[in-house]
Design a protein around this nucleic acid. Structure first.
Length: 609
RNA sequence: GCGCCCGUAGCUCAGUGGAUAGAGCACCGGACUUCUAAUCCGACGGUCGCAGGUUCGAAUCCUGCCGGGCGCGCCA
């Protein structure tokens, strides 16, 4: 899949934005000129200033989508009290002072003081054509930020489970979206590649041999390898002793042990990359920044925290106690930075990590796409870093909380026998189920084409299911629902794309050729055009709120608007050539927005279905 | 016990302090000589957990209660 946008161009524009505040020339780009809500906001603000004085020029005009018009301004209701006038009177004043004849066709004061605004068809039409001509499809470029983005983070020699799947998919969608907005996203795959289990894993690797079939499990079924090691550790005193000694050697930097450790990590990388490849996410080895990366920082961090009195010894462990963090029986909860045996846990690593991201990577925002249960821990890490002065003013770490994935029984997804589900098997099943449907519906296509469709649809369905519900809520994993071709699903959107492409194939046209003027002859066209103008705003919003499900909701609405258009408005068979050109333009714009939107989510749109 | 998250239609989920709370699924009734009918249209379906409060206006903000999930010292 093509990278979302011409990165080099974005980089230059981004630097420009960063250096100086936006002038009038790029203000439109920044706000998104095609955004009707933004356009109306500015017009109504001017009306407020004209009607009530310059001090009201900054008042929020409260423009919202309306069920009685395209948009409505709710400003009058709130202003009434401040102005000591009746809300309807205030609304009338706003309407009277509104200078927007080029944009707005209908202004109406309604209800207790709403100002209903209906956009002009020719304005919508012109903006839609501009959107089609815009490589960015109306997506604004906010000031460029450096954004380290922590996601996926599987463990070496362990199976990735559905929880990893979700942080991987959501994180990747955020990475793509933020990059398209022009930000400098620094992917950080904080893999679990250090800690006490590695003694046992290394000894097991030595026992079975690096080139053995057993070692090969690390690439295919890592849990099997892990559990074999674990079983030996639990049953053999001799093996457990060796394992403990091996941990000491590892932490002491023994070269032979480090070589074995590297071997383990490399075998695991093969597994990670197989999953990432199958899942079509953008992570590569270049983004690996595992726990081991920070080994050299851990002792100095502890020393600094202790010297400065931020951490103190408690029960033999070096701990940070923060105000407001209390646990059972009101006892303060510590962030342990050095265990009583002298070792370091993930608290220390996470502190080293955030310091690195803030200072070395010069982060403007630091994003952690991590499971919701880790919230308390992360808050303590953030707070400690803040107290230690490692986070510059204005740099905010954000925990993008990922809710658990549940089975049909409402409990954490597991197999019937209670084991965690193998991710590869799960993805394979999604593709198989999709393949079954494709075999029935498209017997005309050859085997290879069907396989490709099944892969795009199966994987897309799983990813879209992860993305389409708010990231912090738990959701119930259900193959039947996510693979359905109706409803807010990946396949539904892919199908809409496939039908559009079919129109152009039938017509012997390339979507790039469709650039005619847009004329709106009916409600379906109007709704579709207006919906298209919402793409930029929603992408900008996702970049701020970090909620990909809003983009999903938007794309679903767009696909529905297109479907209504498709039912009611013949494109190729339109009799009037101007109408045909216009509908081709609308169809091409829909295609581009759907494909771009799905690309931002990391979902492929197959040529045909 | 303390903290975080959640409670919206039978089910799965949206919902930016604004008018009569929305989708999808399921169920029921319709629509293919048509650019892909795997798509569409209609109908049905609600005490927004409960009770107060703030507000001209609350699913949304505040407080309390009920119910559920998760976390709370040396795993990560």
């Amino acid at each position: 899949m093509a990278a979302p946008g011409p990165e080099r161009g974005l980089t230059r524009a981004g630097r420009r934005n960063r250096r100086r505040p936006p002038g009038p020339a790029n203000l439109g780009r920044l706000l998104g000129m095609a955004d009707p809500q933004e356009t109306l906001s500015r017009r109504v603000q001017s009306a407020l200033a004209a009607a009530f004085g310059a001090e009201f020029a900054e008042t929020d005009p409260v423009i919202r989508p309306s069920q009685f018009a395209d948009f409505q301004s709710n400003a009058a209701l709130a202003l009434a009290k401040r102005l000591r006038r009746k809300p309807r009177e205030v609304a009338s004043e706003i309407a009277a002072h509104l200078e927007a004849d080029d944009v707005v066709g209908g202004v109406e004061v309604s209800g207790p003081g709403f100002v209903n605004l209906t956009l002009r068809d020719d304005w919508i039409a012109r903006e839609t054509r501009d959107l089609l001509a815009d490589p960015r499809l109306g997506v604004p470029e906010p000031p460029r930020q450096n954004i380290p983005l922590d996601y996926s983070a599987p463990n070496v020699a362990k199976e990735m489970h559905v929880g990893h799947l979700r942080t991987t998919v959501v994180g990747d969608a955020l990475a793509r979206t933020l990059e398209f907005l022009g930000h400098n996203v620094i992917r950080q795959n904080h893999i679990g590649d250090w800690g006490t289990p590695f003694g046992m894993l290394i000894e097991h690797l030595l026992d079975v041999g690096e080139d053995s079939a057993e070692a090969g499990l690390l690439e295919s079924d890592p849990n099997a390898f892990y559990q074999a090691a674990r079983a030996k550790f639990d049953s053999s005193e001799e093996f457990a002793d060796r394992s403990r000694r091996r941990v000491v050697a590892l932490q002491g930097g023994d070269p032979a042990t480090l070589a074995l450790w590297h071997e383990l990590v490399d075998l695991s990388k093969v597994y990670f990359n197989r999953v990432y490849g199958k899942l079509d996410v953008t992570l590569t080895d270049d983004h690996l920044a595992g726990e081991s990366t920070y080994n050299d920082d851990l002792a100095p961090i502890c020393a600094e925290l202790e010297e400065r009195g931020i951490a103190r010894i408690s029960d033999g462990a070096l701990c940070v106690f923060l105000d407001g963090f209390t646990g059972r029986e009101g006892k303060p909860v510590p962030l342990i930075v050095r265990k009583s045996d002298g070792g370091y846990g993930y608290g220390t690593t996470d502190l080293a990590t955030i310091r690195h991201r803030a200072q070395r990577l010069k982060a403007d925002r630091i994003l952690y796409v991590i499971g919701a249960p880790q919230h308390l821990h992360l808050q303590m890490v953030f707070e400690t870093a803040r107290e230690a002065g490692w986070l510059p003013e204005g740099v905010t770490p954000v925990h993008v909380q990922i809710g658990n994935v549940l089975g049909a029984d409402g409990k954490i997804l597991r197999t019937r026998s209670g084991e965690s589900i193998r991710l590869m098997a799960l993805l394979d099943e999604a593709v198989e189920r999709a393949a079954k449907v494709v075999a029935e519906t498209r017997p005309d296509l050859d085997e290879a084409a069907r396989a490709e469709i099944a892969r795009d649809v199966g994987i897309g369905a799983v990813k879209y299911a992860d993305l389409s519900v708010s990231h912090d809520s738990e959701y119930v994993f259900d193959f039947d629902r996510m693979l359905a071709l109706s409803g807010n699903t990946g396949p539904y959107l892919q199908y809409a794309v496939a039908r559009i492409r079919s129109i152009f194939r039938r017509g012997g046209l390339s979507p790039d050729e469709a650039a005619g003027a847009v004329v709106l002859t009916g409600e379906a066209e109007r709704t579709l055009a207006l919906t298209l103008l919402g793409f930029g705003p929603v992408v900008a919003q996702v970049g701020e709120t970090l909620e990909p499900h809003r983009l999903c909701g938007y794309l679903f609405g767009l696909a529905q608007a297109f479907t209504a258009f498709y039912e009611q408005c013949p494109v190729l068979k339109a009799e009037d050539p101007a109408v045909r050109e216009s509908r081709l333009a609308l169809t091409a714009a829909t295609l581009r927005v759907l494909v771009q939107g799905l690309a931002l989510l990391g979902v492929r749109a197959p040529e045909r279905m």
